[in-house]
Design a protein around this nucleic acid. Sequence first.
DNA 1: TCGTAGAATGGAAACGTTTCCATTCGGATC
DNA 2: GATCCGAATGGAAACGTTTCCATTCTACGA
Lengths: 349, 349
Amino acid sequence: MASVTIKDVAAAAGVGVATVSRVLTGTGSVSAATRAKVLAAAKNLDYRPSALGRSLKTQRTGGIGLIIPNISDPFCADFTAGVLACAHGQGGQVLIDVSHDDPAIEAEIVERFAEQRVDGIIAMPVRGRPETWKSVASLGLGLVFAGRTVEELPGTATVLADEAGGVRSVVEYLVGLGHRRVAFLGGRPAESSTRREHESVFRATLEELGVAVEEELVVRARPTADSAYAAAASLFMRRPDLTAVVAASHQLGEAAVLASRELNLRIPADVSIAVVDDVPWSELCDPPLTVVSRPAQDMGYRACELLLRSPGTREGGRAQGRPVVLPTELVVRASCGPVTGSTRTARGR
Amino acid sequence: MASVTIKDVAAAAGVGVATVSRVLTGTGSVSAATRAKVLAAAKNLDYRPSALGRSLKTQRTGGIGLIIPNISDPFCADFTAGVLACAHGQGGQVLIDVSHDDPAIEAEIVERFAEQRVDGIIAMPVRGRPETWKSVASLGLGLVFAGRTVEELPGTATVLADEAGGVRSVVEYLVGLGHRRVAFLGGRPAESSTRREHESVFRATLEELGVAVEEELVVRARPTADSAYAAAASLFMRRPDLTAVVAASHQLGEAAVLASRELNLRIPADVSIAVVDDVPWSELCDPPLTVVSRPAQDMGYRACELLLRSPGTREGGRAQGRPVVLPTELVVRASCGPVTGSTRTARGR
DNA sequence: TCGTAGAATGGAAACGTTTCCATTCGGATC
DNA sequence: GATCCGAATGGAAACGTTTCCATTCTACGA
């Protein structure tokens, strides 16, 4: 009883299905009288055109596949909000799934989206499985990367945050405050390339400013809370003379905060902490955290725009040349301060 | 060039389309030799069956429409994660959109989902627009409410958290710690009914325990950060003698924490704060917050299960009788303590 | 040896649209 | 008055599947 079709409407209005279609899609020409009749019949029957029939015929669904590593991560969530805002405005449907940074799951999701005949895919791609994306490209689907790149597919439409610039400015900021023994808390090399990039920018900036980088102050943690905490704690204990630390993710930043609390280090009096990655609670923290913030929502919006505004339907979203790089922002709150003369060596244990 | 259809595969394998379909769907009977031929041809041509064609024929898409108020809210995000986990496992596609708690937007999203012919809808419904959901029901779509109810549609499948139990236990906990002047920081009446329910449970529990509820200690804020902060601050200033506050949402809890910091009230020495609604940062807060936690992810998983496991396809997810109520948990951290003898009246300003 | 059950297979209809094409009709132009 | 053009309309094909039904063939039991 549920499904009333265009035929039912045509019958009720006493016209042909073609006419009903023309009225409803707004194409072609129909007389005002007929239009009114059709509209009335449609409303009367509570007719809802089937996107299935339409999509089958028109060969486009208006669907957008969104693949993110983890919806519970605030950055991903905000990014998603941006995508939804744009897609909703343009009448697009968003299909979503999470990869958990697993290349196999990611590939499976892509496969499903392809079956669903989405018009395009927006993804924060996992490292090291370019085949997945090559197949998307060869399928003729639109494709936009966000937040990360896939080196093997240069020229793919991409939206990035200027994280390098963010790292640079936070290092400059800390050095400007007088810090000379600045630590870097980053991810393991196997991690996404952006982390490694963070580290190299950190090193480069420090060198540019004439500050020696000590290898002992550059540590890497695996992406678990425990590993992050251990790395932070051991860093503080090993080098009680460090005065500032740059954490490369919010997880690492939290570890640094927790570890310094545990060791009774005052922030920022004893140690300054800056985090590359903003989260809602950075301003609720005590003290509020100085962070590098990425425009997550804008990135999502832009990514979706890139996908939708792409020239050809089939060729959409690819071969766009250079990535869109959105600026990051150094949000100065209260977790970084000038170096004090006081030594805290004695307290270090 | 992209789209290779079942006909192409049939031609390449030298069989009829019906046979290809049987091989691919695993129905009917085909000889091993034929099966191999078909499979080879399909792989060879990189054939991907179109969900559109299939759905059109079978009259079910495997699509699940998810409507939440705001993807950036941690509870909603975790809930979504649960839905995705379940749906992915069952081969379902999740369509997502956000209502921003606006009934008009919500209705529009439902309309779109209906056009897409989703098999069912999971929603955290906005108050006061039952027509939207009645139309879904009459469409024969599956429908599951989560986190909130729609009074006008009793019997609809629903997944809830036992928030009343949570409020009760937190009040009991505070009174057990010796608190007698306990404040309640809630939402305006116009807000969702759960907030009002929080308030009434708060009152009832206090009365049961023989503690008088003072009207002045029950305040309501509009759902903005400013309003929440103003409500909390004025509460503290107006009644410097209160010893504990129960905040009915994380926004309100944050306002309470911020306001007490601003007024130099120590937590929990001067004032105990408990929040109904867990967020990732409650344990990063200083001190870590005592909260009532809802099993967001489980709720999402259960909601999806309810939708998928529903008996009839068309009648799915409706008329399930009583809601599924998942337990909340009182997570005791460090923001509540016993009442101290010290008066802080002098510090109140 | 014949009949028949069952397996294996293909043709064709159906799902709900859009759109091409043909048809009709009114009116304007010459 | 004949011609032509454009508006209005309907029939039918096509989109890519699944599935019903009919057909062929094999093998088995009587």
